[in-house]
Design a protein around this nucleic acid. Structure first.
Length: 570
RNA sequence: CGGGCCGUGGCGCAGCUUGGUAGCGCGCUUGACUGGGGGUCAAGAGGUCGCGGGUUCGAAUCCCGCCGGCCCGACCA
């Protein structure tokens, strides 16, 4: 490839509306352009990288014996109705009518379609099966952001395993887990596998592969000592010590004019520290009003609540609903004497005495509340957000907490989809059993951006050789100098013959411009061919990552360069 | 969905308060000099000022409505 002939629109300035490093660099270095919110066009450089990532994922998938498919993006409503997800997915799924008035949706994942195909499996003898594809997924995200990190249309490699029983699923899951580990190693991503919530996928267990970076949106709690790691949506810790103020024979009402928040009450004369308050949240769960109690200094993890109550819909109650249920406005809510209303409490509150909580009367609170004595808790659940330094629930060592980007998510689905789609086989005993499924997703474009997030410096991107758009760039210092250009061309051809991805920067630009562009684009090796070197019969090889350079005799240059590149390919 | 910011040549911005000539830097084109980290000089090209309506003799500027984008909070590869 000649640089002068490839469309590489680099920019000198960062785009004004980009925040994330990968977003800025991918735009500036000419890898992509935005079309609309959460939708990007990949330019030749971007496509080359995407193609390489796909290649690595494909190799590893094929290595596990998985078979590649290509499913449609356009799905009929009917098949999504069978799993119950047509409405469950809500606004996140693009749904519309075709010209005949039939309702269709754009695929945001493919459990339904693959399970539908799996209904043609007849016998346990055909199992296990492992099916995958690279496909465009459409998700109408409420808030696309950070360039490729969170978009509405993206490429995903999704795979699905079909086994006859749970033991089979466990094995398929393990096989995928290991394949993903190898994939991330080859992509140059240092990921950590964490326990996660299954969310709208359903199923019994799921694991996320996380890249530690502030560009991410998830929080992870991890234990250095024993290796425990979990998404905040799932993470637990040793219960904190009991808390509470002075106990009283019975709750005592006291005036708290204009006190609306935990913070207000904590700073008020005669109030109580946040840890000695009971936070009362009101939720509408499947249209039923439920009180959710936490310690005042704890934060509710809504996903934990959702996972535990197995509800279809869950949302904070409106002010009107709260008023109707409790007779008070937010700020003075409490569960004492809540009567028929269902009360769920966080485990950390168990046994707490001498607590302060709202009196369900505007401007009044209760003190001396003993949870066990004064509140009828119908369900105890772990609902609170873990905090850094708390004891690991497995080994007791202090938990570390950090921000992560989710680069893959794998699920043990069980039989939810196979039952809905009628994917059943006869087992050894001639009995019909639903196929036990797993699903495994890795966002290709997100991984592309993730690599940039963890491989860059002040000059631009620093691609690992495995995924670099080009492995080598040959920069011609003085293209008008015949000796320069011809030498560069000879090296270029020699590298091409040996299968190296090389681009020849033949542009009639000053050297500085080419160097800056090469660094910005992030090509791992640069070969500089200029008059100074030629006088001594050498060209210069420079490593993008370290900046180290070495002179190579022209006659043997190609061989040395090939060696260096192959050494880094994995 | 709630809150904040923004929309002016390809990119980054000024102009708007106080209506009247659309401007700067970079990039782009042509030529010359130049050539080891975004070079210099000269001559050029390029803009429905997001869209619609209103006020006005006159709107990038004032008013109303809409659209689009970014960021912060609730959702996921």
């Amino acid at each position: 490839m000649l640089w002068s002939r490839v469309f590489i629109p680099t920019l000198r300035d960062d785009p004004a509306d980009a925040e994330a490093v990968s977003h800025k660099l991918l735009i500036r270095a000419g890898f992509m352009r935005q079309l609309m919110a959460g939708v990007y066009s990949l330019l030749p450089l971007g496509h080359r990288v995407l193609h390489k990532i796909e290649g690595i994922v494909r190799e590893e998938m094929n290595g596990t014996g998985a078979q590649e498919f290509r499913l449609p993006s356009l799905h009929p409503r009917e098949i999504w109705e069978r799993s119950g997800r047509w409405s469950k997915m809500g606004d996140e799924m693009f749904q519309f009518e075709d010209r005949r008035g039939s309702e269709v949706g754009l695929g945001m994942t493919h459990e339904e379609i693959f399970a539908h195909l799996a209904s043609e499996l007849r016998s346990y003898k055909e199992l296990p099966q492992s099916w995958y594809q690279f496909q465009t997924k459409f998700r109408d995200e409420p808030r696309p952001k950070s360039g490729l990190l969170r978009v509405r249309e993206f490429t995903m490699k999704d795979s699905y395993s079909m086994d006859v029983d749970e033991a089979g699923l466990d094995h398929s899951f393990e096989v995928h887990f290991e394949a993903y580990r190898r994939i991330f190693k080859r992509l140059g991503l240092d990921t950590v596998a964490v326990e996660a919530s299954s969310g709208s996928m359903g199923g019994s267990q799921s694991v996320e592969f996380m890249l530690r970076t502030d560009a991410g949106e998830d929080w992870v709690a991890a234990c250095q000592a024993c290796g425990y790691a979990a998404n905040f949506e799932k993470a637990t810790s040793r219960p904190p010590a009991l808390t509470g103020g002075s106990t009283l024979p019975s709750p005592e009402k006291f005036p708290t004019p204009n006190i609306r928040t935990i913070e207000d009450l904590a700073t008020m004369e005669g109030g109580a520290p946040a840890g000695e308050q009971i936070k009362t949240l009101v939720y509408s769960i499947d249209d039923k009003i439920v009180l959710v109690l936490l310690r005042g200094d704890d934060t509710l993890v809504e996903q934990k609540l959702l996972d535990n109550v197995e509800a279809e819909t869950l949302r904070p109650a409106s002010a009107d609903e709260i008023q109707a249920a409790l007779g008070s406005r937010p700020g003075s809510l409490g569960a004492v004497g809540a009567g028929e209303i269902f009360v769920i409490a966080d485990e950390a509150l168990r046994g707490c005495t001498g607590m302060v909580t709202g009196a369900n009367e505007d401007g009044f609170h209760l003190r001396g509340v003993d949870i066990d004595r004064d509140i009828e808790v119908k369900g105890w659940l772990d609902l609170r957000e873990v905090r850094a330094g708390e004891g690991c629930s497995l080994c007791g060592e202090a938990l570390e907490v950090y921000k992560c980007l989710e680069v893959a998510h794998i699920f043990k689905l069980g039989t939810v989809y196979s039952e809905a789609m009628g994917a059943e086989v006869l087992d050894k005993n001639g009995k019909k059993v639903p196929v036990v499924m797993g699903s495994y997703g890795i966002g290709i474009d997100r991984n592309l951006a993730a690599i940039v997030e963890s491989h860059n410096d002040e000059s631009g991107i620093v691609w690992p050789v495995n995924v670099a758009p080009f492995e080598v760039v040959i920069s011609v210092i003085k293209p008008k100098d015949v000796a320069c250009l011809e030498t560069a061309q000879r090296v270029y051809e020699a590298l091409q013959e040996r299968g190296i991805d090389v681009v020849l920067d033949d542009r009639d630009e000053r050297p500085g411009v080419k160097f800056k562009d090469a660094d910005l684009v992030g090509i791992p090796y640069r070969v500089t061919v200029g008059p100074k070197g030629l006088e001594n019969g050498v060209v210069e090889l420079r490593r993008r990552k370290t900046g180290e350079t070495q002179d190579l005799e022209i006659a043997h240059a190609a061989v040395s360069i090939v060696e260096a590149v192959l050494d880094e390919r994995r």
